[in-house]
Design a binder for these strands. Structure first.
Lengths: 240, 240
DNA sequence: CGCACGTTTGATCCCGCTCAAATTGGGTGG
DNA sequence: CCACCCAATTTGAGCGGGATCAAACGTGCG
């Protein structure tokens, strides 16, 4: 893998990169095949069960991970235990705070999660050697900033019903495994408690608003976690 | 200015860059003197009066500006007019959404503001030619993301009193013209209405909490806008 | 089956919002 | 210099949305 090829584009691509979301539409798409090979040789697949922590607030950064499958929740807590989710990550997002010694958030696997992990030094090397790779990650960072600011509007100015509708729309638009269109049927990656922490609401209020949407026919709920949306436009109207 | 010098470090630095916060501790610090000269030759000083808009949500990006003096507020509005501030910028922050055709926020001068403005193409050129400059801006973007996430906790999980205290602490830590220590006496760059929009509160609630802090001796208020903090630690405790 | 946990549903309370009025201070013109 | 005006802010009264406290329900697992 470390030998450098100068001809074929595809032969040198590591097998496990071929179907990787980061290679197909994430930051690794910016790497040449030999850069990819070099990075891949220093990476390893890591699985986290739902609920496991990938990184803790104010703790040293162990490494960086490209999200292959699953959902990662980013959160922060106040001293007295109040918690706020500050972001959700989906494939092919990169986890881990770049250019800092400590994490600024707690990262936990919301569902079962597969990561392609590289060490901090390997990441720094590829960032130095591939401006395109770094650029791609800068674009992701800017997108995350846009998303964070969008969510600030939800947190600061929307009603409970609008918050829950906004959350459902967010999941519908990301639950899509391989397409760009929002899904009309999906599993929620978060418990009611996590949804409350994401929306700045209590469990009970989330539950009540979901029940109300169900009663109004805006959504269907099965087994708590599975949601169907007969009319996406109707749900979107509820987002305020 | 366009002539390239190979010897002296300081002679070629444009006069109006010498005292510029972006040159001293912002992104322009990453530029060589001839890169700086080239960029400066394409820049111009622009003044905005308090209240003027620098950029509007969903409108094309006109150019980018390094904030020389003053405070810029970033906001988003819902269709029905509800507004949320999603960030404040101070010197030497860069204004303008990079690598996008449209702004994702409305940017307004909160106070009188001076900007060092460059065109989009000039910015793209210097980003291409100077990896250090681009890196510096990436660091700023990551910092803004951290700040946005910190504020999400404030918006989602704090009480009105804690929100107002958090805002006062934020201003105290940024009102410092040339030092890194929080100020104990400063002018608020925002009206009560803007503070409310920043905190997800109404004008009245902001006013009541400020009055309460004043009555409790945590802060002093003169002429609505000027605040003194006799004991910063006591204010910080109120932040939750 | 029976326990445990996540969720739903119900009853009540309270913080922050709404509506309304008074106060302050700055600017303007006589 | 003062009277007036206007916008921003403060203060007050009452209401309501979401929180809190409490209990019932459903689902999965040992």
């Amino acid at each position: 893998m470390l030998s450098v090829s100068t001809c074929s584009e595809t032969i040198d691509i590591p097998l496990f990169c071929q179907n990787c979301p980061s290679r197909r539409k994430g930051s690794c798409a910016a790497l040449s095949s030999d850069q990819l090979g070099r990075l891949a040789s220093q990476s390893r697949r890591v699985h986290y069960d739902a609920g496991e922590a990938l990184a803790a607030d104010a703790m040293p950064i162990g490494g960086y991970g490209s999200l292959l499958h699953g959902v990662v929740k980013l959160s922060k807590v106040l001293e007295d235990g109040r918690q706020q989710l500050v972001g959700l990550q989906f494939a092919p997002d990169l986890t881990g705070r770049l250019f800092a010694n400590e994490s600024r958030v707690t990262a936990e696997a919301a569902s079962d999660v597969d990561l392609c992990v590289v060490s901090r030094s390997a990441m720094e090397t590829v960032l130095r050697d591939s401006p395109d790779f770094k650029h791609s990650i800068m674009l992701q960072t800017l997108r995350e900033l846009d998303e964070a600011r969008d969510w600030m509007v939800t947190l600061g100015r929307k009603t409970a019903a609008e918050k829950v509708a906004s959350f459902l729309c967010l999941i519908a638009s990301h639950a899509t495994p391989d397409q760009d269109k929002p899904r009309t049927s999906f599993d929620l990656p978060l418990s009611r408690a996590d949804i409350g922490d994401f929306l700045g609401l209590t469990i009970e209020t989330v539950s009540r608003q979901m029940s109300k949407f169900k009663a109004d026919g805006v959504i269907g709920i099965e087994n708590y976690r599975h949601v169907t949306v007969p009319d996406l436009a109707r749900l979107r109207v509820q987002c305020g």
